[in-house]
């Protein structure tokens, strides 16, 4: 088994645990590279069939290329697809900085979706190497009834024994990609030939490294037009992956506050 096989095996194990242990599971599909890998891993885990609701919490502000991608692959991959809209900006916490408020819409949208459909598990494609607060996550992370994350008192998790039995009213976040890095994701996309949105590839000297809402996501300078070139670029760079995501850096604890409140 090589490194990618090991990563895949661990993710498949976690997805199967989620399927076995949790009643109503929503797999969040943000249309980015990571959640595409996650859908792909679910198809591996369940032999071509995705036994979860695959949901897109739509801000309405994504790139047109992302919507086209979504509509095509929801059908092609035979997904049990669910689209839910985010509430307007006015409903978010006005004390948050501007871009963070934009992100907070997604948190609210997710909270509403969970309440509306009664989901008890939410699978999200976050990785430890993306951001320092995410580095402290568990594979199975319990959330309060409003989706809050009590990061000061997380349950122990070892030897692949997860805390999967929760009191009613709470839900679990499941993070099957927690142990992957950005480069791992691209190598796996390359090996498995997983489709991704074209925006990741350079056009006119710029490409998107991370995809979010159009108005708060910026492209980076790059000439990488193939996956191999992207991998080579990532091997060389020391710029953080989410450098183009304004919401992470407006204040020192902006991202921590977002996550404590239930942001993915």
């Amino acid at each position: 088994m090589d490194h990618l096989d090991q990563l895949e095996s661990q993710s498949v194990y976690i997805l199967r645990e989620a399927f076995n242990r949790i009643d109503k599971v929503l797999l969040l599909w943000s249309l980015g590279k990571d959640s595409n890998v996650m859908v792909w891993l679910a198809r591996k885990a369940f032999f071509g069939h995705v036994p979860f609701v695959v949901g897109h919490i739509d801000t309405g502000r994504k790139f047109p290329e992302m919507y086209a991608f979504r509509d095509r692959y929801a059908k092609e991959w035979n997904l049990n697809f669910l689209k839910e809209d985010c509430p307007p900006m006015e409903e978010t916490d006005p004390t948050l900085p501007r871009a963070a408020r934009s992100a907070a819409r997604k948190t609210l949208g997710l909270r509403n979706t969970i309440a509306k459909h009664g989901f008890t598990g939410v699978i999200a494609g976050i990785r430890r190497d993306e951001e320092a607060v995410r580095a402290k996550e568990r594979y199975f992370s319990p959330r309060g009834d409003a989706g809050q994350w009590d990061f000061r008192d997380q349950p122990p998790e070892f030897w692949d024994h997860f805390n999967t039995d929760l009191p009613p009213g709470t839900h679990l976040r499941i993070h099957p990609l927690l142990h992957w890095t950005e480069v791992d994701i691209w190598r796996y996309i390359e090996r498995e030939r997983i489709p991704v949105v074209d925006l990741y590839f350079a056009r006119n000297g710029k490409r998107y490294r991370s995809l979010g809402d159009q108005d708060i996501t910026n492209p980076m300078a790059s000439n990488a037009t193939t996956i191999a070139e992207i991998i080579a670029e990532l091997e060389a760079t020391r710029a953080p992956e989410r450098a183009g995501r304004a919401m992470d850096r407006e204040t020192e604890d902006a991202f921590e506050r977002l996550r404590a409140d239930g942001y993915m």
Binding site: R128, D129, A132, V133, A135, K136, F151, R152, Q154, H179, T181, E252, D253, E256
Partner: peptide, 22 residues
């Protein structure tokens, strides 16, 4: 402060939770 990503960890100068970095 590289690993102590929680504000409360930095304020108290103590590591609360485990983190991973490459």
């Amino acid at each position: 402060f590289l690993m102590d990503s929680f504000q409360s960890e930095r304020d108290q100068g103590i590591t609360i939770d485990t983190a991973q970095i490459w």
